[in-house]
Simulated assay, not measured.
Amino acid sequence: MRPIRRVWVTRAEPGAARTADRLAASGFEPIVAPVLEIRPLAPVVDLGGTMALAFTSRNGVDAFAGLSPARDLPVFTVGDATAEAARESGFGRVRSAGGALADLAALLIAEAPRPGLLLVPGALEPAGDLAALLSGRIRVRALPVYEAVETGVAPPGSFDAVLIHSARAARAVAERGPFAGGRAAVLSEAAARALGGRSGLEIRIASAPDEAALLEALGKPAHPV
């Protein structure tokens, strides 16, 4: 396995810049070339009957915050980074599941106020089915507030590793392969499956669905020659 120095950052902005900063601080050389772009949508936001909001990504928080001034509803998030984004946007009552989508469903079943409607502002094509995980115990309405579209960017001319935050990004990377060796650090089993075994990359799956674990899966940087 080649030493890890140059790391391709595939996630969409503005997250790509945050990831690049973390990589640089850890001694890597980030190459920012997002395979996805986040585009906000403009749905009508109707909060009638809504008891709480659930967010599965920072992108959902940012898009919803630009559509509605409402900040008084309780908020449940899939992880701590999304919870931080919600607090930064002005939401006062925020609970983080600190994990994956199944953890968010368990938190909602245990703590979400009832009766009423759970509004889930998120992607036009969500990565998972929160309503199915809730098994009818809570009434759910999805509100698409953004879409992720492929950028068509070419892979960097040379890289030692690639960071992949989602199954959608993994599919986009796989379409650009196979690659002549290197490592792929992916955030989930779903992303690993989407990347597939024909990529030519050594696939490492993060031990938890957060970026700290993703960078741990990446390994340590090679010392510059």
Results as ranks from 00 to 15, higher is better:
residue 6 R to F: 05
residue 6 R to Y: 10
residue 11 R to L: 08
residue 12 A to H: 12
residue 13 E to N: 04
residue 14 P to T: 00
residue 14 P to N: 00
residue 16 A to W: 09
residue 16 A to D: 07
residue 16 A to G: 09
residue 20 A to F: 07
residue 23 L to K: 07
residue 27 G to Q: 08
residue 29 E to I: 14
residue 30 P to W: 14
residue 30 P to R: 14
residue 35 V to E: 04
residue 39 R to N: 10
residue 40 P to R: 14
residue 41 L to V: 12
residue 45 V to H: 03
residue 46 D to P: 07
residue 51 M to Q: 14
residue 52 A to I: 07
residue 56 T to Y: 08
residue 58 R to Y: 03
residue 63 A to E: 01
residue 65 A to T: 08
residue 66 G to L: 07
residue 69 P to V: 02
residue 70 A to C: 13
residue 73 L to H: 04
residue 75 V to N: 00
residue 76 F to V: 03
residue 77 T to E: 06
residue 78 V to D: 00
residue 81 A to M: 03
residue 83 A to K: 05
residue 88 E to F: 10
residue 88 E to Y: 07
residue 92 G to P: 00
residue 96 S to E: 00
residue 96 S to H: 09
residue 97 A to I: 05
residue 98 G to W: 02
residue 99 G to R: 06
residue 101 L to V: 15
residue 102 A to H: 14
residue 104 L to H: 09
residue 105 A to R: 02
residue 108 L to I: 11
residue 108 L to R: 10
residue 110 A to I: 14
residue 111 E to P: 12
residue 112 A to G: 12
residue 113 P to L: 05
residue 114 R to Q: 15
residue 116 G to E: 07
residue 117 L to I: 07
residue 120 V to D: 06
residue 120 V to G: 07
residue 121 P to L: 02
residue 121 P to K: 01
residue 128 G to L: 08
residue 130 L to E: 10
residue 131 A to M: 10
residue 132 A to E: 10
residue 133 L to N: 11
residue 137 R to H: 12
residue 138 I to P: 06
residue 139 R to E: 15
residue 140 V to R: 06
residue 140 V to Q: 06
residue 142 A to M: 13
residue 152 G to Y: 11
residue 153 V to G: 01
residue 154 A to Q: 14
residue 155 P to Y: 07
residue 156 P to F: 05
residue 157 G to V: 06
residue 157 G to P: 01
residue 161 A to K: 02
residue 163 L to S: 10
residue 163 L to T: 11
residue 165 H to W: 11
residue 166 S to D: 03
residue 166 S to T: 01
residue 167 A to C: 04
residue 171 R to I: 07
residue 171 R to T: 11
residue 172 A to P: 06
residue 173 V to E: 02
residue 180 A to D: 15
residue 183 R to P: 01
residue 187 L to Q: 10
residue 187 L to K: 10
residue 188 S to Q: 00
residue 188 S to D: 02
residue 189 E to M: 04
residue 190 A to Q: 14
residue 192 A to T: 02
residue 194 A to F: 02
residue 194 A to N: 02
residue 194 A to I: 02
residue 197 G to M: 09
residue 199 S to M: 12
residue 199 S to Y: 09
residue 205 I to F: 10
residue 206 A to K: 08
residue 208 A to V: 06
residue 211 E to F: 13
residue 216 E to H: 13
residue 217 A to V: 09
residue 222 A to W: 10
residue 222 A to M: 04
residue 224 P to N: 13
